[in-house]
Computed example of a mutant assay.
Amino acid sequence: MTDSILDTTPLDPRAQPLIAALTIEYERRYGDYFGEPAGQELLRYPAELFAPPHGAFLLLLRNGETIGGGAFKRYDGQTAELKRVWTRADLRRQGLARRILLELEARASRQGYRRLYLTTGFRQPEAANLYLDSGYAALFDTRLDPEAYGHLPFGKDLREPGQTSALEDLRAAHPGAVAG
């Protein structure tokens, strides 16, 4: 069994299993909860946003087969926004998403970003737990029902992990987001 990370784009045919599985998962978890088919979210961003020097798109391959992936794009001059962190459903709970997350963090840091920002859906508790367990600060009140937010924002200072003072503007960008 050989795993490798591939830097590529969402247009790469090897990315299609990731995109297809995400579409199915989003549709299953959310349907049209947000006012449109959940799979539409995947079409929201042009592929070039995930290309260097401002972005990245990674696939995790096992023996040449796509088993995971993730991406980031520029959010602002010091912040990259993570998108599409995913692992194949039958291979979850093996640390693959954490590996992808670490790869994305390293690339974002090398590309000059100081912070990472992301949102995940309220019906994805395993993703929220991954981010919390990986040192991301919840930019919302974790005592409230996550459905009250819809999208759950998280942030991480790459230079000083654990510091949250550099994340306050990200917290302020979300109405109703308060210290968690």
Rank of each mutant, 00 (worst) to 15 (best):
G31C: 06
A138P: 06
I5Y: 04
G95M: 11
R29L: 13
L132D: 09
S165K: 08
F34L: 11
Y75V: 01
R114H: 10
L18I: 11
P125G: 04
D7C: 11
G95R: 09
D133C: 07
L144Q: 15
R44W: 00
D133W: 04
A20Y: 02
K156E: 04
F140T: 05
F50W: 06
I5S: 01
L43W: 01
G31W: 06
K156T: 04
L43K: 13
A21P: 03
E25S: 06
E147D: 15
L42F: 05
D7A: 12
Q40A: 15
Y26S: 00
H174F: 15
D12P: 02
E27W: 01
Q163F: 01
L102T: 13
T9F: 01
A137T: 11
G135T: 05
R88T: 04
V85D: 03
G162R: 06
L104W: 12
D145S: 14
G77A: 13
E168C: 05
L18F: 01
Q78S: 13
L60G: 05
G39R: 15
S134E: 15
E25K: 05
D3G: 02
R110D: 14
A97M: 08
E27S: 09
G35D: 07
L104D: 05
P175R: 07
L170M: 09
K156V: 00
F154K: 07
G39W: 00
L104S: 07
A172Y: 01
L118G: 14
Y131D: 05
Q40V: 12
E36W: 10
D76Y: 10
I100E: 08
R110H: 08
L59N: 04
T8Y: 02
E36T: 08
S109H: 10
A166N: 08
D133P: 01
H54R: 13
L132T: 09
L132Y: 03
S109M: 14
A89G: 05
I19R: 14
R114C: 11
G135V: 11
T87Y: 01
Y45C: 07
N129V: 02
P46K: 10
R115E: 13
R93E: 13
R115W: 03
T120H: 09
L101K: 02
L18T: 03
H151E: 14
R98P: 00
Y30V: 08
D12T: 00
E27R: 12
L144S: 10
T66M: 00
F140N: 06
P46S: 11
N63I: 04
Q78M: 12
V85R: 02
A137W: 12
R74H: 15
P13W: 12
E48Y: 07
P10Q: 03
T120Y: 08
L43D: 08
A56S: 08
L167M: 11
I5W: 12
D76Q: 08
D7P: 02
D32P: 00
R14N: 00
P52V: 11
L104K: 02
A108F: 14
A106K: 12
R107N: 09
L152A: 05
G150F: 11
L91C: 06
P175W: 04
F57T: 04
A97Q: 13
A20L: 07
R92S: 04
L102P: 02
P17I: 15
H151V: 12
R123F: 01
A106M: 06
R88H: 14
A172N: 09
R115Y: 03
R62I: 03
S109P: 03
R28W: 04
E65T: 15
P175I: 01
Y149Q: 12
T119F: 02
Y117S: 13
E25L: 07
L158G: 04
Q163P: 01
A148F: 06
